[in-house]
Design a binder for these strands. Structure first.
Lengths: 125, 125
DNA sequence: TTATGTGCAAATCATTTGCAAGATC
DNA sequence: GATCTTGCAAATGATTTGCACATAA
């Protein structure tokens, strides 16, 4: 556990549920450890995501987002404004029938696109 | 309708349900119109995707894929081997309860990650 | 002919990586 | 001291864009 990794974890924690990009995590981590390098942030984020400690969220037309809570909610992203919303697992009932035999869904990485209420269908991406 | 756009459409058609990347579309289009440029392929794919004529599929850790059939199936992608599978709409019953009020799901862009049968849980990405 | 699209190359953006120096155990 | 991690900068890969020229309507 290095100071840098600690700063990245604290940055993610500070960002809370805001689905920060690596860039945002970098800026937050820099407040704690000004010498930290972008590459270090990417390295730690990737290591933790691969280890399942955090979640990487790949979205259309933008940088990956990261999320500290790996098991308790799903994500939807607005196709127009790129805002992300959480859906608590308790509230989300996601059913997919008709999967090919043998396929195991990794539902934790589910991301859906939507038009969000703030956009309502009027804004143009 | 230019010769180039036609070549891109025919390339997508030739690729069928293989979810080609822009690179693959470029190679197929080049067979018909050898002078075509990568930039032109990207331009046409983006125009068509924005117009809803084709679908852009953003996947974790890889180039975007494109798909000619915008309305009749969903996609799942294997987290390990990046193979993509189609789920016909008729077979897929996707239900999401607990969406924030006012959110309209754009289910056509749904992509789910899974572990596919070919990987079965043994390969490491 | 007049707007629109193309080819090319350079630019951009997100992300990864090689390597020498530094921190951790 | 051996190993793992960092900082930096350069490399990579995907995609976009500026601009002069070509093409379609």
């Amino acid at each position: 556990m290095t100071q840098q990794k600690k700063a990245v974890i604290e940055a993610l924690s500070e960002a809370g549920g805001t689905h920060p990009t690596a860039e945002t995590v970098y800026l937050l981590a820099k407040k704690r450890r000004p010498s930290i390098a972008m590459g270090t942030v990417y390295r730690n984020l990737s290591l933790m995501a691969d280890a399942g400690e955090i979640r990487r969220i790949t979205v259309p037309d933008g940088a990956d987002r990261f999320d500290i809570f790996p098991k308790d909610h799903f994500h939807i992203i607005c196709s127009r404004c790129a805002r992300m919303y959480d859906i608590p697992v308790a509230d989300a009932e996601i059913t997919v029938k008709g999967l090919p035999a043998g396929v195991k869904l990794e539902a934790t990485s589910l991301v859906m696109e939507c038009i969000c209420p703030a956009c309502g269908g009027d804004n143009i991406k």
